Computed example of a mutant assay.
Amino acid sequence: MRLLMLGGTEFVGRAVTEAALACGWEVTVFHRGRHAAPPGATVLRGDRTAPGGLAALEHGAWDAVVDTWSGAPAAVRDAAQLLADRARSYVYVSTRSVYTYPARAGLAEDGPVVEASPDSVDDTDYAQAKRGGELAALAAFGDRALLARAGLILGPYENVGRLPWWLTRIARGGPVLAPGPRDLPLQYIDARDLATWLLDAAERGLGGPYNLVSPPGHTTMGELLETCVRTTAADADADADLCWTTPERILAADIAPWTDLPIWLPPGELYDTLHAADVSKAVAAGLRCRPVGETVADTWAWLRGLGGQAPRRPDRPAVGLTPEKETEVLAVQRQRQ
């Protein structure tokens, strides 16, 4: 298989590139040159947002294109139109955020989606930008377009900082504010499992939308954080003590779910939207998700290799609760006990 990876040097794109190379595929990476591509890939340079920025793609043919773009849809439109006659399929890594909010628990791929335009040059609304990207891929490739609607993505190379924040916080030890309930089910996908599924689907010529996260309850908040404790124990500054706290107390303390406490959402509409998707279509098409312990251990090993400092996308805000706020909330909790 000949793969054209648009991006391919960070997180999901890098996972796809490395997986394809490991399968013996011929991989071409098209990127701006800000980060090194994985060894073994052919590199083409260009900035798809600049005039003439796609010139490097004007020649060549590929079996599949994978595009992780999350900016203005017009960039997907231009790339997809340019490649429509020279690529067999176009895999666009989208998001479950394209569904109109709130998305009910158990929503499948036929759920209602936001209004968007494939010609938009606006990227301020993430859901509309991704839906516009989907429409651009569909306009150029039709049923040869695969729309991978991912949810929460974790694993090595994560450049948003959600799992890295929990790992580094727990490695510092001491009392840790743990958001409950402890048995709260979580849905996410390891970037490497996403990559494996995408490549298999591209090789098989699948098209249309697929929800791509783990089955509901693949892990729980308790299992995730307790796995972080065990994984970091040998390198921790002190023993970590998970202090489980009810959603009501966390919200009353003006702590923001998802950002101050990454991954976690209290039960409710937003939780149902992000952690309760129907993924039966993807599972039937071969989706397999590795155990949470493997994702945590490999992310920690990668993080330690970087000296504990994870990279962060400049277009995403920093995540994580400040030590001062955590100490304050835990102190109040101890007084009430």
Rank of each mutant, 00 (worst) to 15 (best):
50 A>N: 08
171 A>L: 13
79 A>S: 06
121 V>E: 13
301 A>E: 15
250 I>G: 02
33 G>M: 11
214 S>V: 10
150 A>K: 01
163 L>D: 00
264 W>C: 03
292 V>D: 00
94 S>R: 04
151 G>M: 07
186 L>T: 02
155 G>V: 00
95 T>L: 10
140 A>H: 02
43 V>M: 00
77 R>H: 05
165 W>P: 09
281 K>Q: 12
119 D>A: 15
202 A>G: 15
271 Y>M: 09
221 M>S: 01
93 V>L: 06
309 Q>V: 14
126 Y>P: 06
29 V>F: 02
194 L>W: 13
58 E>D: 07
246 T>A: 14
201 A>T: 09
296 V>K: 00
308 G>R: 10
67 D>C: 05
75 A>P: 01
192 R>N: 11
303 L>E: 01
190 D>E: 00
333 Q>V: 15
256 A>Y: 14
207 G>R: 05
4 L>P: 03
173 G>Y: 10
25 W>F: 05
68 T>F: 03
165 W>C: 01
324 E>G: 13
303 L>R: 01
314 P>Y: 14
137 A>P: 01
256 A>G: 06
143 D>N: 15
99 Y>V: 01
297 A>E: 07
271 Y>Q: 09
224 L>T: 00
102 P>W: 06
261 L>C: 01
79 A>F: 02
28 T>A: 07
111 G>E: 08
7 G>R: 00
328 E>V: 05
296 V>G: 08
65 V>Q: 02
125 D>G: 14
75 A>Y: 09
229 V>L: 03
118 P>W: 01
311 P>G: 09
175 P>E: 11
317 P>T: 04
221 M>V: 11
209 P>M: 10
238 A>Y: 06
292 V>M: 04
236 A>N: 10
280 S>N: 11
189 I>D: 04
159 N>P: 10
140 A>I: 07
216 P>V: 12
159 N>Q: 15
